[in-house]
């Protein structure tokens, strides 16, 4: 019993230490902090500003306006890319040798991943709140219904999956040169989905891919929450949990890979 308590204690202590350091680093370095905030806001501004006319396309029917339509995409995009930024941080730590020091010092190494994950969640919540504020300020209207809260819950799961995916890559390759390997798949998954118009309006090859892309399920469920007509909720949450579990195994194996490689 005593051993269990100690193990649990060290897990929490390690996770807390790693999380604090990452959050501190993130918010005290404009180089990390600014892009993570600027890019989602830029996407939101550029898409809603330039592409509003798309609501005139036949088959485009969304009650929360184009702001609401894009807000869901940008929120899910920040969640997924939050994970990628965490992968960058881990890779950077391996390059500077800090990660090895962590591996040596931490009594519970799973706490390291947990620490990075807690920091990433913290960063994402900060970004998400600002993006939400900007979306409302830009004129987004949310008809009666569950609103943004279930959307946040879904995005949190996606954020977790993103973190575990990017951590797995970072811990296997242990170099910032691996950045494109974390970024590109996430970027492709996000953009090969109904980003600008609903799935029904998409045509050609991109429609064929988007039909089977899990991100489509996330976007459709999220947009459903926003207008108060949730649909495909079970599928979206089920897929998010499945990704979380699969990438969890991927990340833990990555950690073992890093441990055995010294």
């Amino acid at each position: 019993m005593l051993r269990r308590t100690r193990a649990g204690g060290s897990f929490i202590a390690v996770a807390r230490g790693v999380a604090w350091r990452n959050l501190h680093n993130h918010f005290s370095h404009p180089m990390y902090f600014v892009p993570s905030l600027v890019f989602p806001l830029l996407f939101f501004t550029a898409f809603t500003g330039a592409l509003g006319a798309l609501t005139n396309v036949r088959g485009f029917d969304f009650e929360a306006g184009y702001e609401g339509f894009q807000y869901v995409f940008v929120l899910i995009q920040t969640a997924a890319f939050g994970g990628v930024f965490t992968g960058f941080a881990i890779a950077r730590d391996f390059e500077t040798g800090f990660a090895r020091r962590l591996l040596l010092a931490a009594p519970n190494r799973k706490g390291i991943i947990a620490g990075y994950a807690i920091a990433a969640l913290g960063r994402w919540v900060f970004t998400a709140v600002i993006v939400t504020g900007v979306a409302f300020a830009a004129g987004m209207t949310v008809p009666a219904g569950p609103g943004v809260l279930p959307l946040y819950a879904l995005a949190l799961l996606i954020n977790g999956a993103g973190i575990l995916f990017a951590s797995g890559v970072a811990m296997r390759l242990r170099t910032v040169q691996a950045g494109p390997l974390m970024q590109t798949p996430v970027f492709l998954a996000l953009f090969l989905a109904p980003v600008y118009v609903p799935l029904a309006v998409l045509e050609g090859w991109i429609h064929s891919i988007a039909r089977y892309n899990p991100v489509t399920a996330f976007l459709e469920a999220g947009r459903g929450f926003l207008v108060g007509r949730p649909s495909g909720v079970g599928l979206a949450f089920g897929l998010a949990v499945a990704l979380l579990l699969a990438f969890g195994v991927w990340a833990l194996r990555g950690l073992r890979n890093a441990e055995t490689s010294g």
């Binding site: 592409l51 006319a53 798309l54 005139n56 396309v57 036949r58 485009f60 492709l188 953009f191 090969l192 109904p194 980003v195 600008y196 118009v197 309006v201 998409l202 045509e203 050609g204 090859w205 991109i206």
Partner: peptide
Amino acid sequence: AVNAGGLRSATDL
């Protein structure tokens, strides 16, 4: 590639 596919419907405007 992504925009050419995703924004194809804009040509209907």
